[in-house]
């Protein structure tokens, strides 16, 4: 029952971080929050007796995925603000 309570508390943390990731205006904040969702999920996997899955989720879900997002944002020259979409003239003029 204690483990159940710990899983429920982690579940609330995950849901709060997930809602925050969807609502945040800054893309950087929402990338980090979705990494946090994965990190807490790996804690839940550990609590329910699945250490293999917990290791995978911590290494891939919260580590490598975050790096992939950051690389992609830098490569796309996506401004941090989600709604700031107009492409700069330098980008638009330079390449097609």
């Amino acid at each position: 029952m204690l483990v159940d309570a710990a899983i429920l508390v982690s579940g609330f943390v995950m849901i709060a971080a997930g809602i925050g990731a969807v609502l945040a205006r800054s893309l950087l904040v929402s990338i980090l929050l979705s990494g946090g969702v994965s990190l807490v999920a790996s804690l839940v996997f550990l609590l329910m007796g699945a250490p293999d899955v917990a290791m995978t989720e911590a290494a891939i879900g919260s580590g490598l995925t975050t790096v992939v997002y950051l690389y992609a944002m830098a490569r796309a020259r996506q401004p941090d603000e989600e709604d700031a979409d107009p492409l700069g003239d330098a980008v638009k003029g330079g390449r097609r």
């Binding site: 995950m14 929402s30 969702v37 999920a41 996997f45 007796g49 879900g61």
Partner: peptide
Amino acid sequence: FKIAIATSVLETGVNLVILSTGYIRGRTAP
């Protein structure tokens, strides 16, 4: 990019739902 992030959250949720069928109280790792 926000859609990709939301998909990641969705995927974590689906993984939790699949894994929940194997959760048994008070047992150890296999």
